[in-house]
């Protein structure tokens, strides 16, 4: 069942154009969003969160257009990015106590569970956390309101291999509970480990949007790993 649709999304910048980006996200499936730096992943994700204004195109969640139903939709989705550091000098406990008042579905048990899993101390401040722990803090906030769809911009960047693996296990658990996940990444092994679908973006255009099996069938040559196939495709673009 499709729970999010991006149709013909275009965004023009002076030096970059996102053109005709379309894909769907499905309940109970993990979608890996892959592409090199500057390919348009973050612009697409920011458009999906109404943070940037697409030149054209439509974005719908749960059958509702984003523009007219932004607050309602954001109750049902979660977002996390690895890089941004919010309220670095406030205690995590205070950030959470304010944040949860905005969510009607805030799940205190889930919050406590992920707090333990990610080994986050509520009395610390974000400025006292390592980059990897900051990623986990952002994820903690995104996971604690029973989001039906998680949009994660490079959630595994900065994490050590053990934490990355642990996080991918969390993704699989959430998928089994029926949540949909879209996560952008540069790390192809993350895709191999848990992605059901792959959206591959090159120079602002969707080069592939299909299941992981179809991707392997159509784009990966015999004896080639996913990473080698993507590197080959990227070089093809560069040489073209």
């Amino acid at each position: 069942m499709s729970i999010a649709q991006v149709r013909s999304l275009c965004k023009e910048y002076p030096s970059f154009t996102l053109s005709d980006v379309s894909f769907e996200l499905h309940k109970g499936r993990i979608t890996g969003f892959i592409g090199r730096n500057g390919a348009g992943k973050t612009t697409t994700i920011k458009s999906m969160l109404n943070l940037v204004h697409p030149s054209s195109g439509e974005i719908e969640y749960f059958g509702l257009p984003l523009k007219e139903n932004e607050a309602q939709i954001k109750q049902r989705i979660g977002y996390s990015t690895g890089a941004v550091n919010y309220y670095p000098k406030k205690k995590i406990r205070d950030i959470v106590s304010v944040t949860k008042t905005f969510y009607s579905n805030w799940d205190e048990n889930a919050y406590r569970e992920y707090l333990r899993l990610f080994a986050i101390d509520e009395n610390k401040k974000p400025s006292e956390l390592s980059d990897g722990m900051k990623v986990k803090l952002n994820l903690l906030l995104a996971l604690s309101h029973r989001a039906e769809l998680l949009i994660l911009d490079e959630p595994t960047s900065g994490l050590d291999p053990f934490s990355r693996d642990e996080l991918l296990e969390v993704f699989i658990e959430l998928k089994n509970r029926g949540a949909a996940i879209l996560f952008s990444t540069h790390i192809t092994s993350d895709l191999e480990k848990c992605a059901d679908d792959i959206v591959y973006i090159q120079n602002g255009k969707i080069a592939a949007s299909c299941t992981a099996d179809e991707f392997e069938k159509h784009f990966v040559s015999d004896g080639e790993s996913l990473e080698e196939a993507i590197l080959r495709m990227e070089r093809g673009v560069k040489n073209a």
């Binding site: 943070l51 607050a71 309602q72 954001k74 109750q75 941004v84 919010y86 309220y87 944040t99 905005f102």
Partner: peptide
């Protein structure tokens, strides 16, 4: 940015 990501 944090505020814009809240359900408001």
């Amino acid at each position: 940015l944090y505020s814009a990501l809240l359900p408001v």
